[in-house]
Amino acid sequence: MSSNIKVVTRHGNSLKDKLYLPAIYDGVKVTFKHLFDNVTDMNAIDTLEYPEEQPTDITSRYRGLHRLTHRADDTIACVACFMCATACPSNCIFIEAVDREDGVDEKMPKSFFIDTLECVFCGYCVEACPCDAIRMDTGIFSLTGNSREDFVMGKEQLLSHKGAFGEEVSCART
């Protein structure tokens, strides 16, 4: 065990560190550099005028609003195994399972709700899913509604969300 421990010397004990003033000078230098840049070129300011301006840097790894994926034959990929609900740290996934009658699989969710107000967008559900049935690649980062119920996403709504990064169909079960 001890072979894995790396002893790191504590910083901040030099005279320069103890004086504080050099560090304060470094900070103030950055502040004044930005002030100078922003005053000389107003268009280069690093803030977005949201919502008129939308972010352009959302990548495929961004954890946006959830969606339920489809299989290649356009049926629901979810088999209601409850892995996401089990992994969920805020217990905000509510599933009711039912016998699947369309011959594709044995089991499917009768209802599938995610309470996005309780959700912490940790992505554990996506990690846990054995069927690649739940994803957070919609790129949707803003959610508005008039009542608490508006934020509880049902199965149909989750299925209607589209993936924003090309991978539309569930990648499980080749």
């Binding site: 088999v79 209601a80 195994c81 892995m83 699989d105 044995e106 089991k107 054995p130 069927c131």
Partner: peptide
């Protein structure tokens, strides 16, 4: 490999 749909899991 159908542990997700299997009740015994």
């Amino acid at each position: 490999v159908d542990c997700p749909t299997c009740d015994q899991a």
